[in-house]
């Protein structure tokens, strides 16, 4: 149990996908302009990350590895995740039109989000079992949510600031993102010290 909590905390804070591993940067800069969109996108990411892990983990363990095809991981995962997201989109349109409209364009966008592929491959590389993989995926999604929500707040403040002409728009956002990323380095070693020996 303690192990799961430590994995969750590590995924959210220490190994934050956006701010520490620099995966999924496109939505981080593209949809972080207001809180509502940022949160909507992030919730979709949490959902897709969990779902993608639930599907790709068995494929890796029961299909690819026994047949000596572990090297096909990336190709197969991309294929499966893309198909999966399409499937989810069709199902949502039919059974939850409200959620479908709320997620809108973000759901198909996530198909090509490297953070989703990253988390599924990271789970395999770390040698996690199924439950730990799921916890790690949800944690990574929540970490993405945290980064997006914080950064949408930062960008809201940037709107009312007056940077030099050359920095206006994306450059100042990137500078802010770098400072935010630096601040997340402060979480280094927090998990090892909170859960010694796990």
């Amino acid at each position: 149990m303690l192990k799961l909590v430590s994995v969750l905390m590590a995924a959210v804070l220490v190994n934050n996908y956006v701010l520490r591993q620099f995966l999924g940067i496109c939505p981080f800069l593209g949809v972080s302009k207001d809180l509502k969109n940022a949160a909507g996108m992030s919730v979709a990411v949490v959902f897709v990350m969990a779902l993608a892990t639930a599907v790709t983990y068995p494929i890796q363990v029961y299909l690819l590895v026994p047949n000596g095809m572990g090297y096909l991981q990336t190709v197969v995962f991309i294929l499966v995740i893309a198909a999966l997201v399409q499937l989810v989109e069709i199902a949502l349109k039919k059974y939850a039109p409200a959620l479908y409209t709320a997620l809108g364009v973000y759901l198909p966008l996530i198909t090509t989000n490297c953070a989703v592929l990253g988390v599924t491959i990271a789970n395999i590389d770390a040698g996690y079992d199924f439950l730990t993989s799921m916890v790690n995926s949800v944690g990574s999604g929540l970490g993405f949510l945290l980064a997006m929500v914080i950064f949408s707040g930062v960008r809201g403040r940037i709107e009312y600031s007056d940077p030099p002409e050359a920095f206006k728009g994306l450059p100042i956002a990137l500078v802010a993102a770098a400072i935010l990323s630096l601040s997340f380095f402060g979480f280094n070693g927090i998990v090892e010290n909170l859960f010694p020996g796990v």
Partner: peptide, 11 residues
């Protein structure tokens, strides 16, 4: 699967 889903859950 996708074809089946789009037929079954056609809106």
């Amino acid at each position: 699967l996708l074809v089946a889903a789009s037929k079954l859950m056609y809106v």
